[in-house]
Structure formats: structure tokens, C-alpha cells
Design a protein around this nucleic acid. Sequence first.
DNA 1: ACGTAGTGTGGGAGCGCTCCCACAAGTGAT
DNA 2: ATCACTTGTGGGAGCGCTCCCACACTACGT
Lengths: 351, 351
Amino acid sequence: MAGHGTRGRSGRRPTLEEVAARAGVGRGTVSRVINGSPRVSDATRAAVEAAVAELGYVPNTAARALAANRTDSIALVVPEPETRFFAEPYFSEMLRGVGAQLSDTEMQLLLIFAGSDRERRRLAQYLAAHRVDGVLLVSVHADDPLPDLLAQLEIPAVISGPRSERETLPSVDSDNYGGGRSAVEHLIARGRTRIATITGRLDVYGAQRRIDGYRDALRDAGREVDEALIVPGGFTEDGGRRAMTELLGRRPDLDAVFAESDVMAAGARKVLREAGRRIPDDVALVGYDDSAIARHMDPPLTSVRQPIEEMGRAMIDLLLDEIADRRPQVSRSPGRRQVVLPTELVERDSS
Amino acid sequence: MAGHGTRGRSGRRPTLEEVAARAGVGRGTVSRVINGSPRVSDATRAAVEAAVAELGYVPNTAARALAANRTDSIALVVPEPETRFFAEPYFSEMLRGVGAQLSDTEMQLLLIFAGSDRERRRLAQYLAAHRVDGVLLVSVHADDPLPDLLAQLEIPAVISGPRSERETLPSVDSDNYGGGRSAVEHLIARGRTRIATITGRLDVYGAQRRIDGYRDALRDAGREVDEALIVPGGFTEDGGRRAMTELLGRRPDLDAVFAESDVMAAGARKVLREAGRRIPDDVALVGYDDSAIARHMDPPLTSVRQPIEEMGRAMIDLLLDEIADRRPQVSRSPGRRQVVLPTELVERDSS
DNA sequence: ACGTAGTGTGGGAGCGCTCCCACAAGTGAT
DNA sequence: ATCACTTGTGGGAGCGCTCCCACACTACGT
């Protein structure tokens, strides 16, 4: 219970200076050992390490940040409200990936909400103060001023879900095109002939890509694309419901629906059920996101899974690269860094 | 585009000293203005504020932390894996509450995962270094050493979901007892006579309280508690399934089930369906958590809603109090601070 | 013998704040 | 006029690091 690497639970914490005294070396040497510099003899290093262990020394981050002018922390900015980001699979899975990848480093993770105006002003202050070494951006709209602000302040940033095909920021995305495509190919393989799609918000790049996948899958299978079978659902359940109603009115003979989110699929399912269509017998249904809703739907919903956790990991990798690149003022980033990760179709009973 | 509160987008940021020079005052005075001390004349304050605005001054957090020996940040510790915490309503809602309440302050939020051993060691280092002013603990098991560590280090902490009825830490909880009670009272009011319950993990205090509520609701209605109608489901879907199967075997004539989580309700629902029981006609079903699963179930599931966002807010309130109380070494906390927030029964079609 | 490179190492300077002591100036009682 | 406060202000000291220059000391050439 006594001392032994704990040294006065309530007393002052030991400083570099004290470790140096204990080890019989200078302050600079201890600093070198702590920071893993190679320019230290083995004997000295061992002595310092012993002193560190005996005193239970832990570096003072604030002092380090002040002296070295870096914070060793990155921020995950959540453009909060009403975003799909807060929905089930995204948030927790991405965080899991981010956390896992970060646990190998000394970096800490800050969570910043930028929903309200107040929060956004606060964020701007925050960034202006350079309180983080880098920023992770998620589900940012095309017209959001945040990326520009970051560029202006020269703060490294990585975005998940690029805003367009010519995203300037390093980005991580899942293969929305491939995801849409695989869903439709699956339906075709199952013998469906009149395949509709309920799309997401058309101002979201990823949603567009899913539609592209839908179109190309049909074309490549030699099918004609019937524009009447493409209806927007805005990523909401209610939107899905309305879209499905619309579709049933336009093309009563459809036999499959690809909803570009599980939530919209849930809405569509209700309408189908009310219309007396059986799933999957009369109409096959495929969703997107592989959320809890999909797993618990009746029947369980076939859905496109995105590797969200991996995306989180990839974002951290990119960001750390970006930060490292900027440290010595030489060698700018070689070029754009865009990562696209594959999706996976999870087949269940709805198709 | 020029200067004007932005001052060299890539140049050094202005310091207190520079603001002081600009305003024609001393360093101390600027510090006082920045920190809202009342001991500054109005004229001086105005001059300083003008200088701050002109230079676009933002305090350097690291320097402040070093000099004042506080970090202005708190950590939310997530004892990651397999926790129910990461499931739908909890994580995002609690974070929303925490974030909202924090946005009124200068405090920043750190997210720390403490799932693996490695992460836990890192966390211990982190706390030993006093890198946060306070800690938010969520879904901690009764035998977790973390609370003791925090006490030893004298780091203020608040726990959500007390570990037992004599939790020593300040805590925030929802009224699990009342929640369980209201679910059962609702079923009684609906004329159900043989009401079973599928419980959570028995080592979780909150789960116990829900069972207490179940028991008391029956007793107070003059019913007898049939122990055979109480089966543990461990908070998993599979557990819910097994428990339901067991229940059907023991008491084929039951006409209502209170599942102490939506996930278990989903498992129970499947078994009921396979057994040919109609919901709610033959068997009424009530869940707990009011998650997406409940909203999207077929039929939509009556469920007990916890005010998770408010819980997050309350946790921050408690923690900030705790931190403030500890600053001047006088006046210890007057006593235990335990907050219990009411739940709400959300009635849907399953009951 | 005398450079001429390395290696290790010590410690001064300084990062940008807060804390607090010293002190000037004003206010009101005696 | 004197004393005792109160109010406002300036600036020294110091928080615990990193950076970097200066200085041994060694090990080779020549």
C-alpha cells in the first residue's frame, strides 16, 4: 500500500526535475528518455527508467503542450442534430474504430458537438485556439463552412463521406456505388424483374452513388431503367412510407424494393403489409446499414453492411499521417488521400 | 478578408501580453478581464475587450492549465465491449445530454474507452496524470476497481446506474423500480391476470429494481407473485428467446410478459409468434428502453422510456458541483448526491 | 602529437498563462 | 490632517515541460 510508484496519493506529482535528481542526471536527459530519443546511453536510460518507476512519474501534459506547441489530441466533430449519424450503427461503431486505432497512440479523443449556432461558434473559437492537432469530420453537408475554416487555420482534417466526387479533404467512405449495385444484383439473381428503389436525400453524395449503383446493376443485366421506379425517401421512416405508397400507385406490379436505408425499409414494409403484399413472396425488400432495425424486422431484413468500424480506423490513420506530414515543414502530402472500403450484403429473409 | 479578428491565419496567435500592450494595461488586468473578475473598472474592461476583439485573442489552454493546475476537461469513460451501453438509445442520447449541458461551460469532453486491459492501463496512467478535472462513469459493474482508483486519486466522479443501494459515488439513475412497476400496473389495468417477466442480468442493480417494481405492483394489486413467472434473460435477444420458451413451458396460460429490455422482448416475440400466440390478443408484451427496436417491432412495442438525455445533463450538473466543491479546500460536499429521474411508459400496440 | 568528427549530457531560455504581493489612488470616519 | 480601508492595477515568480546550444569525452584519422 505504501509508496512504490504511487507516491503520496494526494501529494504533488513528481516532476521531470525530481526524476533527474533521483537518477543523478540532468533534466534534458530525462526528457530524452521519456520521449524515446536514441541519443542516450543504455546505462543512463536504465537509471532514468528506474527513477521514473520508483517515483511513479507521469509527464504533465499541459506543460508539454505549452512547451512543444502541440496538444496530442484530436477532435471528432459531430454536426449533431437530426443527422443520421446518431442512428444506430454509425455512431457507436465508428467511435469503436476510432477508439481502437487511437489506443495505440498517445492521442486523446475529444468529442465536439456542432449542432446549434452557439455550439458552432464555440467550435470556431476552439479551432482558432488550435486546441487540437487534427479533426475528424463526419456527415458534413456540401455547403458546410467548416472544411474551409479548417483549411484556413491549417488544421489537418479527415472527412467521412466525401461531399462530392472531387472532395478536397482526405476522406474515408464506404463503397456506396458497390453497395447499391450488390443489392440490386442480388435481387436480379433472385429472379426479381421489377425492382424499385427508395433513395436517400439527393443532396448527399453517398446517396447519389447508391442510385448510380442501382442503375448500373440494372443496365449491366440488360434491363431497362424505369425512372418511375426511383422515388426519394429522404432517409426517414415516414419518407420511406410515402415513397412506398407512391411506388405502389405508379407500378402496382413491382416485385422488389431496394430501400437505401433500413429506416426507410421499415416504412416501406408497413405500407407493403397494409397493402397485403407479403415479404418476400410478393415483394422482396432490401435495406441499407444493417442496423438493429434490420436484424429485428419481421421478416429479418436483407441489408447492405458498411464497415463502419474500419472506416473509423482508416480515418485515424489518415489523420495521423496528415498531422505527421505537417510537422517538419518539408515534404507536403504527396497527393489526395481517399479511402473507399467495400460493403457487404447481409442476406436475410426479406429477399 | 484582411486582419480583423483573424490576424495572420498562419502566424503566431496573440498572447495575453500583446493584448495588454495594445490595451495599454498590464498583464494581470487582461487576465482579470478574461476570467471575469469583478475587480476591474468598466473603462479598463472595455479597453481590454476591444483589444481582444481586434487581435482575435484566444487564451492558450495549455498555458492556463499549466499555471492554474486544472484542465477544464472531463472524461466520459466507456467500459466498452459487450456493454448494453453501446446499444441504441443510451449512447447517443446520453452524449447528447452531456454535450448540451457542457456547451454552457468552458469544459471539454474527452471520450475514453476502457474495454481491453491495455486501454484500462492507459486510463489508469491518464487519471494518475490528472489530465481531467472529473470523470463520468457509465454502466460500471459492481466489482470494477475504477471507482476506488478515482477515490484514491481524489478525482471527482459521477456514476450513472449506481452499483447498489448504497452507492458511495454521486450517481444518476432512472427510476427502475417505478419503471418496472408502471409496466406491470399497465398490464393489470389492461385486464391481464397472469403476468410473467423476463429479467435482466441479476448482478445489475437496476435490473433488480425492475423486478422489485414487478413484484410490488402485483402485490399492491392484491395478486400473488408466482415465482415461476420470473425468468432471467440476461439482456440479450437469445436470452429473451430462451426465457420465453421456458415460460411457455411452465405456464402455458400466461397472458402477458414484461421483458426488462426491448432486445429481450424481441426474442420473446419470436417465440410467441412461433408458438402461434398473437400479440396482443393472446399475450400482451411490454419492453424496456423505448429503442428503435420497440418502435419498429410488429406490432410496435409498448416500452418503458428512460430520460437518458436528462440523465446525461444531470450527470454533468453533479460533476461540475463536485469539481467546484473541491476547489477551495473548505466546505466538503454536504452529503451524498443521488439523482433519480422518472421513467415513462410509452404505450403502443403490443399491450 | 594534433586535429576532427562524432556521442552523450547538462542546463538556460522560454512557452503563455495564473497567482499574489505591492502599491497607487480614492473614500470616509475620526 | 490622519488613519484605515477599499478598489484597481502592474508585474514578478513560477507552473513543468521541450528545444537547443555548449561542453565534455571518446575514437579515430593523419
